[in-house]
Design a protein around this nucleic acid. Structure first.
Lengths: 328, 328
DNA sequence: TTGAAAGCGATACCAA
DNA sequence: TTGGTATCGCTTTCAA
């Protein structure tokens, strides 16, 4: 074959006009069945595929979603990896593709986003890793660029009234479930190891633990805090033990912290991490698993509704429940 | 702004014709400097960006490279993640973008590849995770689709004469260096823990260790084999110790194996892993680090030469040396 | 050096 | 239901 087939080739082969071919492809119901099957046969025989760029030029849709590939951050890098995988699949089901870009920081990210929008390279974005004071929603909102966020808009007084769509995982429920389960197993002194800075995520996870603990249990001595680092976590837990603390079990804000705690406590004290990373699996540490496949499909649905093109404006949201993966 | 600026808008603003604008953008040297700067000012003011799809339709180039996002595979998932990141950056420098796709298996991957090629969605592919009997090179080669491989074409009698370009990391050299260093530190009984199946990679890494060990040292008792699994690795090393084996140090074919070995040997016996994953870093295990940034830029260079479009045919290759990251 | 005109491949609009 | 025609934004070829 010298040349990929075009609509004109198909039309000639089927003895119809170009437009009829286009109709068979995009609105099959308006074409008479006999004509339709004749065209489809020609498509089949010539191995015709629409030229993506030509279609995009005409429809003014790139059928592409932009996603920032974030710098790899330690053990939890696998989470965004799995999310990305799920997102590619969900997008593919709607005929959408994922275009990657990288950025040094948020400003750089906005610069990239602007570039992609102005070049009509993407129809919208899936934003991850949101944080308090995140400038991206306002930036995109002002310019009318469709996007969906993986993560609640933390700084807002009422997240339910956010002016943009978001999906998130209910970390509070995850920690609550984990703690409740451990209580049912007979453990009483269940500690929590979380982060110091007031990140929305970290606070939610801590609240999940707090809410599950019996009201008569004094929590102060059980509430540990340190940075997201294995060695630091180990030191923190060891220090607490040296200071007289005692734990029947420990729930943590991340697998990184859980790993450090595991080293400090040994395998006899149950430890629960967060994110169910490959490390937790490898070491047999229980962990809260985020439903990333559901997150991805919810993100696409929020962005596209039930159609095959992104909605100009959408403001729905979905808060999904994680599940705890228990390991010996 | 009601409408993104087009070449016509810029031309009108600058008082020139459309193709002069096009020339300024694509071949600045043929335009008189005064005209050029006037056009550039107009571009700046209108915030003009070429419409990606329109350009692609005209040039018949998608300026896009396809990459399969592989299923997450345990601890080492971070490696492809880092490679992808580096690839996006390298591609971006040449004005290329990365389009992701997923696939269940190789057949599915070829189906996706075919689809992308027929839709003129990509100019070429970056293939990863090659293996003995990999059907992809022949498939792509036959159809004249440009691609570069991350990984040597293992089955070939002479990899240097491969009919397609590839980049790889010299795992043998990595293990050789690690072993040599340990010998210099005074360790004698340095064991190797590798994989059973005859994968090209695994065999190379074993040879690196073998080649570095002193000729008078009997290697059989030091050569361990097990599947790429933490628990299995732990059992294997423990079993060897129970059987009377003794190790001054252990080099491994992967961080997964190194992690298991670490548990079996304790922190007093140096263990070296492969891939320098976040886990190795978190646990303070030394590891052989692949130069993924260099791999990515070499891949792009092999595919595109020094230009800004993919070469129709290229057959070069690059074998890059890894380095060992030593940790306490 | 600059301008006019012709497509690239597909779809939307309108008339038949 | 089907076919002709204009157009999406850009680059390339050919004249001026």
């Amino acid at each position: 074959m010298s040349h990929p087939a075009t609509v004109a080739d198909v039309a000639r082969a089927a003895g119809v006009s170009r437009q009829t071919v286009s109709n068979v492809l995009n609105r099959p119901e308006v074409v008479r069945p006999s004509t339709r099957s004749r065209v489809q046969a020609a498509v089949q025989e010539l191995g015709y595929r629409p030229h993506a760029s030509a279609r995009r030029l005409r429809t003014r849709q790139s059928s592409t979603l932009g996603v920032r590939l974030e710098p790899v951050h330690g053990i939890s890098g696998a989470v965004l990896d799995r999310f990305l995988h799920a997102l590619v699949d969900s997008a593919d089901e709607r005929g959408m593709r994922i275009l990657l870009f990288t950025a040094e920081d948020v400003d750089d990210e906005l610069a990239h986003i602007e570039h992609l929008v102005e070049g009509s390279d993407v129809d919208g974005f899936v934003l991850t890793s949101t944080f308090h004071g995140d400038p991206r929603p306002a930036w995109l909102g002002t310019r009318g660029v469709p996007f969906v966020m993986f993560g609640r808009p933390w700084g807002l007084p009422d997240v339910d009234a956010a002016p943009h769509p978001w999906v998130d995982v209910d970390g509070r429920a995850g920690l609550h479930d984990a703690t409740t389960h451990l209580l049912a197993l007979g453990h009483r002194r269940i500690g929590f190891l979380g982060w110091p800075s007031h990140s929305g995520q970290g606070d939610e996870r801590r609240r999940g633990w707090q809410g599950a603990m019996p009201p008569d249990e004094p929590l102060d001595a059980l509430d540990l805090t340190c940075e997201d680092d294995v060695a630091a976590a180990r030191r923190t837990v060891t220090g607490a033990l040296d200071g007289g603390a005692r734990f029947d079990a420990l729930v943590c804000a991340s697998d990184t912290l859980a790993l450090g705690a595991r080293f400090a406590l040994g395998a006899s004290v149950p430890v629960v991490g967060y994110d169910d990373t490959p490390v937790a699996e490898a070491l047999g540490i229980s962990s809260v698993e985020q439903p990333l496949v559901e997150v991805a499909s919810a993100a696409v649905e929020l962005l596209m509704g039930s159609g095959r093109s992104v909605l100009p404006a959408s403001t729905g949201h979905r808060l999904l429940a994680p599940r705890v993966v228990w390991r010996a």
